[in-house]
């Protein structure tokens, strides 16, 4: 029997509700894993909603319990984007984990896309239990995410060659603790600062911890960027069993149209499934 996803609202201890979609594991008595999806930053979240839903469904079919969570001020959760801070988002991730833990005691996976990976790592630092990671096209440095986001504000000025002043003015405002308005999003200083400090630094792994690192590319001669390779090596050296792969597909989190990367869906399910057969 196919069971569809269940929409639910999680009550946050700091107030308000977080919207979540739960995809229960299908066809197994006990779930193979408990997966929490952590979406990327701002507009990238909307662009990638479809891919996240497709993957969540595929993983549920493969026997995983999957929870997709909308962070404070994002999607259908309460609050405005401008109310969000990095700390509040980390708390939201922990709230999602807590909810999953009421459903299952299966091994925990934090699945991030882009900046969601940075959030996954920061949240995992506060968890007492072993965590496996699934990274989709991870951002390795929050500073770059912020820089690229602020550049959106400069978009029109960029073409007139005036962008430098615009981005600097935004940075000054944030430094003074003020929020800034970028591409329809109000960005609070607390979110900007937390994001800027986030890096994809490995946390001490539990025995047998897995890291699945997947990227997509439309290039024929695919190779990880030096930045990706450096980060992967750091995770491996700290003790994670690394599975890394580049598959063919569009950068669906930023393309003009909503696009799909079927090869990524397949590679993800395959990479996560044998992890449990061998474990």
């Amino acid at each position: 029997m196919k069971q569809g996803p269940q929409a639910l609202f999680l009550a946050s201890p700091s107030g308000g509700q977080r919207f979540a979609l739960f995809h229960p594991a299908a066809g197994v008595a006990t779930a193979r894993g408990a997966v929490l999806y952590i979406h990327p930053f701002a507009e990238e979240m909307n662009k990638s909603r479809r891919m996240a839903a497709l993957q969540a469904r595929a993983l549920a079919q493969a026997g995983f319990d999957v929870l997709q969570l909308d962070l404070l001020g994002c999607g259908d959760s309460s609050g405005d984007f401008g109310d969000a801070s990095w700390t509040a988002w980390v708390q939201d991730v922990l709230l999602g984990v807590q909810w999953l833990r009421q459903q299952t005691s299966a091994p925990l996976w934090l699945w991030g896309l882009r900046a969601g990976c940075l959030l996954a790592v920061d949240a995992a630092r506060q968890l007492a239990e072993p965590v496996h990671f699934l990274f989709w096209q991870p951002s390795t440095n929050g500073k770059l995410v912020l820089q690229q986001f602020l550049r959106l504000k400069a978009a029109s000025e960029l073409l007139g060659g005036q962008a430098k002043g615009v981005v600097q003015a935004l940075r000054d405002q944030l430094a003074q603790g003020e929020s800034v308005e970028v591409a329809g999003y109000r960005l609070a200083a607390g979110l900007a600062h937390g994001l800027e400090q986030a890096t994809l630094t490995p946390i001490a792994p539990a025995a047998g911890a897995q890291l699945v690192w997947l990227e997509v590319s439309t290039r024929a001669d695919v190779a990880f960027s030096p930045v990706s390779l450096q980060s992967q090596a750091a995770w491996q050296q700290s003790g994670y069993a690394l599975h890394s792969q580049i598959v063919t597909g569009p950068a669906f989190w930023q393309t003009t149209e909503i696009e799909e990367a079927p090869a990524l869906l397949e590679a993800t399910t395959v990479a996560m499934t044998p992890a449990f057969i061998s474990a």
Partner: peptide
């Protein structure tokens, strides 16, 4: 203009 920013980022 938004696509220009995405293009630069890519």
């Amino acid at each position: 203009s938004m696509a220009v920013v995405t293009l630069i980022t890519s």
